[in-house]
Simulated assay, not measured.
Amino acid sequence: MSRTVSANITLSLDGFAAGPDGDMSWLIETALHEQCAAGFAGWYRGVDTAILGRTNYEGFHGFWPAVADDPAADERSRAFSRWFDAVEKVVVSRTLDEATWTNARVVRDLGATVRELRDGEGGTAAVLSSVSVIRALLAADLLDELRITRVPAVLGEGLPFLDGPLPRSTWALEAVQTIPTGAVVSVLRRR
Score class of each variant (00 low, 15 high):
82 R>I: 04
186 S>E: 08
135 R>Q: 07
185 V>E: 14
131 V>W: 05
70 D>I: 09
49 T>Q: 04
88 E>T: 15
84 F>Y: 05
180 P>G: 12
65 P>K: 04
81 S>F: 07
101 W>C: 10
81 S>V: 06
105 R>I: 11
179 I>V: 15
126 A>Q: 15
64 W>V: 06
115 R>D: 12
167 P>I: 07
188 L>H: 13
114 V>C: 12
127 V>L: 00
171 W>C: 11
145 E>Q: 14
93 S>L: 04
93 S>I: 02
150 R>V: 15
108 R>N: 02
187 V>A: 00
188 L>T: 01
162 L>M: 01
161 F>Y: 09
173 L>R: 10
148 I>N: 08
65 P>F: 03
151 V>C: 05
143 L>T: 09
139 A>T: 06
131 V>Y: 01
150 R>W: 08
189 R>Y: 08
175 A>K: 07
190 R>I: 13
120 G>Y: 03
141 D>I: 01
59 G>L: 04
138 L>V: 03
148 I>D: 03
138 L>C: 00
126 A>V: 15
51 I>Y: 00
104 A>E: 11
171 W>S: 14
52 L>F: 09
88 E>R: 15
135 R>V: 05
107 V>H: 00
168 R>F: 09
73 A>C: 10
151 V>Q: 02
50 A>Y: 14
96 L>S: 13
131 V>K: 11
113 T>S: 15
99 A>N: 07
163 D>G: 00
188 L>I: 01
79 A>R: 13
160 P>E: 01
136 A>L: 12
158 G>R: 10
102 T>N: 15
173 L>E: 14
87 V>I: 13
171 W>D: 10
168 R>W: 06
136 A>D: 11
90 V>E: 03
149 T>M: 12
76 R>A: 15
139 A>L: 11
84 F>D: 08
59 G>W: 03
173 L>P: 04
152 P>T: 06
167 P>A: 00
61 H>W: 02
104 A>G: 06
168 R>M: 08
93 S>R: 02
122 G>A: 04
182 G>K: 02
188 L>Y: 08
184 V>L: 06
53 G>F: 11
111 G>M: 12
99 A>Y: 02
190 R>D: 02
58 E>L: 05
180 P>K: 08
189 R>L: 12
125 A>P: 05
49 T>S: 04
166 L>Q: 13
102 T>E: 12
168 R>Y: 13
164 G>E: 00
138 L>P: 00
156 G>R: 11
67 V>L: 01
152 P>K: 05
175 A>G: 08
150 R>N: 09
169 S>C: 09
115 R>C: 12
162 L>H: 07
188 L>K: 00
97 D>M: 05
53 G>Q: 10
125 A>T: 13
190 R>Y: 06
98 E>N: 05
114 V>K: 05
175 A>V: 08
138 L>F: 02
155 L>Y: 07
154 V>L: 15
132 S>N: 15
142 L>C: 06
173 L>D: 12
157 E>W: 06
149 T>G: 10
54 R>M: 00
57 Y>Q: 08
68 A>G: 10
183 A>N: 07
177 Q>R: 03
154 V>G: 06
75 E>G: 09
163 D>P: 09
188 L>Q: 09
92 V>L: 09
152 P>D: 00
99 A>Q: 03
188 L>V: 11
161 F>P: 03
175 A>W: 01
71 P>Y: 15
179 I>Q: 08
75 E>S: 13
68 A>Y: 07
156 G>W: 13
